[in-house]
Each structure stands twice: as C-alpha cells, then as structure tokens.
Amino acid sequence: MSFDPSCPVPAPDGPLVTLAHGGGGRAMHRLLAEHIGPSVGDGALRHDGAVVDVVRDGGRLAVTTDSFVVTPLFFPGGDIGKLAVYGTVNDLVATGAEPRVLTLGLILEEGLPLATLDRVLASIRSAADEAGVRVATGDTKVVERGKGDGVFINTTGLGEVPSSVEIGAWKVREGDAVLVSGDVGRHGMAVLSVRESLGFATPIESDCGSLLPNWRALQAANVVPSCMRDCTRGGLAASVVEIGGAADVDIVLDEGSIPVDPGVRAACEILGLDAVHLACEGRMVVFARAEDADTALAALKSVEPSAARIGTVTEGTGRVWLRDAYGGERLLDLPLGEALPRIC
C-alpha cells in the first residue's frame, strides 16, 4: 500500500472564473481590465477589430492560425501560454516571415482559478515580448465547468515576408541538404511524462521556444533555405514526410545523425516510442542547397548546439527513408494517430 502524502482537503484556489466572466457584462469588463489587459497589453480589449501595419515595401503578408488544447496546462519547460505564442510565431517563421502581431482567443472553463489564468497570461506576455510580437486584438469566452480543459487558446499570427525571401516545399531540389535545428522529441516526451505520471528521475524539459533566433542566424549567414518547417505534432517525421510529398522528391535521413537527448532516448526505449514521431515545439527542419549546408549548420549551431545535418534529398516520389547504422534503409511513415505504448 503506497502512502499518499498530499493533503486530503485541497487548499482554496482563490477567486475562480465564473460564467459571468464570459457574459459581456461588468464581470467580463473587470476580467479584461484587471487580468488580460495588464498582461498582454490593452490592444486585446480596446475593440474587437484592430488595424495593423504589417506589410511594407513590396513584402507579402504571412498568416497562420493555431489552437492549443494541451493537458496539463503547465509542463516541464513551458505552459499553454508560451506554447500558444511560440507555436504561431514558429509557423510564421517557417514561411520566412518576420512575425508582427497576434490575436488571442481564450476559451476559459468555469471554475478555473484566476491565479492560474494570470500565470498563463504572464507567460503569453513574456513570450510575445521575446518574439517581438504584439497582441493586437482578442476574444474571451467562458464555457460551463466540464466543457473545457481549463484554458483553450487560439492565436492567429500575421507577419511580413520580405520580397527577397521565397521559401517553400516547391523550392526543394534533388541534392538539397536536410538539417534540423536541435534535438527532437522533447516536448512530446515532457508532456507524456507529466500526463502519465511517469516520474523520470531526470525531468525531461520541453523544447518549447521561438525559432526566430534560428531564422535570424540563417539570414545573418546569408543562407536562403529552400524550405523550413517547424516540427510540431507528428514530430520530425511528419514535417519531413509532408515536405517530401509536397516536393515530390525522396528524402534519405541518416538515423544515427538525428539528435535526440539521452533522457528522451532512454524514455523512448522504455515506452517503445520513436523520438522522430514525438512532438517538438521549438525545432524546425531546414532544407538548404548542398553548397550552403556547412554555413547553415554553423548558423543553426550558434543558436542551439545540438543542431545537425541529418539527410539529403534524392530523386523520387515523395517517400522518406531512414538509413540505419548497418547500411539498410526503411520507410519512414506517419503513425495513424497518437503513439500507443506497447504491452511488453
């Protein structure tokens, strides 16, 4: 019989989110004025619409939207607020854009402690500041208890792609080098470890972070990638498989060169999972012309030392191959859904 040291009477959470906070009345205005506004700036509450100055001098508008529903809200290395900012910022970065503004949609569950909301908002603020984006407008709804998971967040991001930048799967060519901006699989394993109470002796921290510094380093080194893609759900595998399919080329990855944190690798061995399929939230795969590969790698390593060159684009029909240490190759495919831990 194990002994549970937690106190049977939970400590009071302080004031909670109630349905009134979503009702459009005084409670809602207080929520905006006292919690959301001070944290993320009053752009989020002045008006439902915002006029923003995003594109200048022949640049193009980049737009992306993403919803965040992570459980638990706080995990080693990050939280849903940080995730909601960087997830959208990274989607913009992968198009070659300079992120400018975000919109912030909050769906709060009745009963959420306001202190928890404040922590999430503070995290949104600090991530937005770091990425140099402004929350231009937003929306807040409250759903009944049991109909949400504490907080759901939607962010839409707008950015500017300079006229000199053209990045996308259609630019990928046979012979391109494939690089990854850092070790893969950490976010997926960090969330799994807290969700399933796996209790690893060495906590695995999410890689949740902005890819803007990585992109800036590439630009400073005068590298124009043919394609960049942030690795999120489905991990490195999903990003590479998508690009291979879109570019109609085969991609050969050298399994041994894919960087994986030793803790993540050990956890994968225990659970029967493959790190290339686990989610990342601060990593991207970069395709560059072979002659730029060394420069690109050096630029990526200056931001994150675990960055690596992991493969090559070959002629083909959209398949991705993993070359193993014994000279064999196997097909890398998307898993059907969530990875299911095996029995024995």
């Binding site: 029967g272 196997r330 097909l331 495919d333 059907l336 299911l340 095996r342 029995i343 024995c344």
Partner: peptide
C-alpha cells in the same frame, strides 16, 4: 493497412504485418 486493419497483426506494435507495413513497404 494500419488505418483499416482486418486483423490484429496489422494493429499491434508487435504484429508481424504491422512490422512489414511500417518498415518494408516500398
């Protein structure tokens, strides 16, 4: 296929059909 398995060996991470599908399909 693993998306529409007719039998268990195509589902399980230990099933032979799943192993062939995952690693050997060309």
């Amino acid at each position: 296929t693993p998306d529409h398995p007719l039998g268990a060996p195509m589902v399980s991470s230990e099933g032979a059909c799943a192993a062939y599908y995952r690693y050997r399909r060309t």
